Amino acid sequence: MSIELHHLRGFLALADEKHFTRAAKRMNVSQPTLSRNIRRLETLLGRRLLERTTRQVTLTPAGETLYDRLQVLLPQMEAALRLEPDDDTFRVGFAWGFPTGWPQEVIAHFEEETGVSVQAHRHDAKLAGVDRGDADIAILRGRLRAPGMEAVTLLHERRVAAVSTRSELAERHEISWREIADQQLVINEVSGTTDLTDWPTDHRPGISVVCSNFDEWLEAVAANKGVGIVPEFVGRQHVHSFVSFLAIPDAPTVPLNLVYPSNAGHPLIPRFVAMARAAVAEPA
């Protein structure tokens, strides 16, 4: 019937005040707006609810019946729509290497503005659980194509080479992307950001170890099983005492994305995405 809550609230205010000007002030609307809303409500119900004279407003029998019912029902409806903050949680998935800086600022701002708690969950899977409904949105790196998912690229991260401190390469400060093609790689096939297609088909590195998560990958590099390639932020975290990191000045960058369902996702996804885009757009 297209009856909206503000129609019903306006009717209750007018029934209480018996005066359009006072009721409009109580509703924080203009008197013409309140009059239009009351006429709209009467049209939709097909009943006259008020008797209007130059001096007073009185309720018709239909108006009295509606007033008695709304006094009980409307407060219950409004209470049902006021969800407590703890009733909902916004879940942010990640496969490994949760970024530092902008996500923490976004989460704090998001929780303050929406009253909804944010929880970060690690999932050792390519889409960090967002495709299975275990996360509402995921922070993922690399080139992504997933049916039923939207991906928003926030920024691009530089790459570094991870080598064992026992490797001859550990004495160097940097290595070229082409030189890496002559090495053996440790690959994280589930949540990693590097594979052989990042190099030309005629000059690609070999693969020495294939891992299924970041921790296995890191230990394989530390054991000098091969070279690993990761985003630059990993090298700044000093993640392992037996792993060194070399700059790769000519390496292709890695996109960092927010990934979420195309349909039927959490209603606050657009708010989180907008906050994240604004945060990474601000100068450091």
Rank of each mutant, 00 (worst) to 15 (best):
P231H: 00
L8G: 01
Q119W: 04
K18V: 07
G142H: 11
L45M: 12
R9Y: 02
V118T: 15
Q237E: 13
E105T: 12
F214G: 00
E219S: 14
W177Y: 08
L14E: 02
M1F: 11
H240Y: 03
R55H: 10
L169N: 06
T100C: 04
V116Y: 01
V230W: 00
K18G: 15
I38T: 03
N188A: 14
S262Y: 00
A264H: 15
R141A: 10
P261K: 07
G148H: 14
G129F: 01
R55G: 04
L154M: 04
S212H: 15
E105H: 14
F245D: 00
F110D: 03
T54C: 00
G101F: 09
A274W: 05
A62P: 13
L155W: 12
H240R: 08
P252S: 03
G101Q: 10
A274K: 13
F272T: 01
A108P: 12
G206Y: 12
H203I: 02
R178C: 00
T89A: 10
R40F: 07
L154E: 01
L218A: 06
V209R: 11
P103C: 10
R91F: 08
A151D: 01
A247M: 09
N188Q: 13
R277Y: 06
H203Q: 09
V273E: 01
L155R: 15
I229K: 04
L8V: 07
Q76I: 07
R48N: 06
M27C: 13
V92H: 03
S191P: 05
L258Q: 05
E111H: 13
R143W: 05
T60N: 08
A264K: 15
T54Y: 06
I248P: 09
P32T: 12
E174Y: 09
A24G: 11
P270A: 07
E168C: 12
H19M: 03
T33A: 13
V239H: 02
S191N: 10
E105M: 15
K126P: 08
A62R: 14
K18D: 01
D136H: 14
G142C: 09
T54E: 09
Q104S: 13
P75N: 08
E232Q: 14
R159T: 06
P267F: 03
G148F: 12
L66C: 10
L59Q: 05
H156V: 00
M149S: 06
V259G: 06
L74T: 09
A274Y: 01
E232N: 04
H240C: 04
A284Q: 12
N257A: 00
F11T: 02
T153Q: 13
G192I: 03
L50C: 07
H240T: 03
L70N: 08
T201S: 12
